[in-house]
């Protein structure tokens, strides 16, 4: 199977604090992979390093078989390469409508030239329609198509999380990074989310998620990586990881 992402020796230092210490990860095409660990283990830092919000201090990131140029590692170029993400603290464009939130990212794959835009030529209309249609279809897929003209900030919490996923999907990603998608959701919403993530995988998109809801992690993941204090402590299929001594220790503390 083809490796989509191979991270080796990923290190991130913040002025003396080592947030990530030689982290290794590998993700194959079509997998659902979870990244777990206690609070402060460095999970979101991994995402930020992958997406260019942070520049890694060291290490290699191989994406689709090629190393990423870490000198020019910025979020908008990462998005273009096909890595999309959601955020732990919801970061929607709150005062834009639901459909506009998605249209902002759909535009990534539908470039219109500046001249087309100011003159509103026919080609512009066609592209704009196609952006709208694509965005609408995504909202149908995610289950928000009845609220496209609502303001994003007026959506319920669970719906906002879903909208973030739709917005990420609109960039037509190869790899989707979800940062605690189930946080704050009730049991029913979480169940829906699991179905949604599986549907996304069935579309051919590889999913890499950070999650605290262990029931969800164990039921959905093909493999699990565990971090503690910025270091890999375990990885493998869920049933293995669950029994791993180091993992139990990290979550529950040392045996007395």
């Amino acid at each position: 199977m083809a490796k989509i992402l191979e991270v080796s020796g990923l290190t991130k230092r913040f002025a003396g604090l080592v947030a990530l210490d030689k982290v290794n990860l590998d993700i194959e095409k079509g997998e659902i992979i979870s990244l777990i660990g206690p609070n402060g283990a460095g999970k979101t830092t991994v995402f930020n390093c992958l997406t260019g919000v942070y520049k890694p201090t060291g290490g290699l990131i191989n994406y689709l078989g090629k190393p990423l140029d870490l000198k020019h590692h910025v979020p908008h170029l990462v998005a273009k390469l096909g890595i999309a993400r959601t955020f732990q603290n919801i970061r929607l464009f709150s005062n834009m409508t639901v459909i506009e939130n998605v249209m902002v990212s759909s535009a990534l794959r539908e470039k219109t030239s500046f001249l087309d835009i100011i003159l509103h030529v026919k080609g512009f209309k066609i592209r704009e329609d196609s952006i709208f249609r694509k965005s609408f279809e995504l909202l149908q897929f995610i289950g928000l198509s009845d609220k496209i003209y609502h303001l994003a900030s007026n959506l319920a919490y669970g719906e906002q999380r879903k909208l973030e996923i739709a917005r990420a999907l609109a960039t037509a990603p190869v790899l989707l990074l979800l940062d605690e998608p189930a946080a704050g959701m009730n049991a029913i919403e979480t169940k829906d989310l699991i179905t949604l993530i599986r549907n996304i995988r069935d579309k051919g998109i590889t999913v890499f998620l950070i999650e605290h809801d262990m029931k969800m992690v164990m039921s959905i993941s093909d493999r699990v990586f565990v971090l503690n204090y910025g270091k890999n402590i375990a990885s493998g299929v869920p049933s293995q990881v669950q029994k791993n001594e180091l993992v139990i220790e990290a979550y529950l503390g040392e045996k007395v």
Binding site: V53, P75, H76, R91, L92, F93, V104, A168
Partner: peptide, 10 residues
């Protein structure tokens, strides 16, 4: 609305 989110969608 949100610079980080905007850059994350390209």
């Amino acid at each position: 609305e949100d610079e980080i989110a905007a850059s994350s969608v390209g």
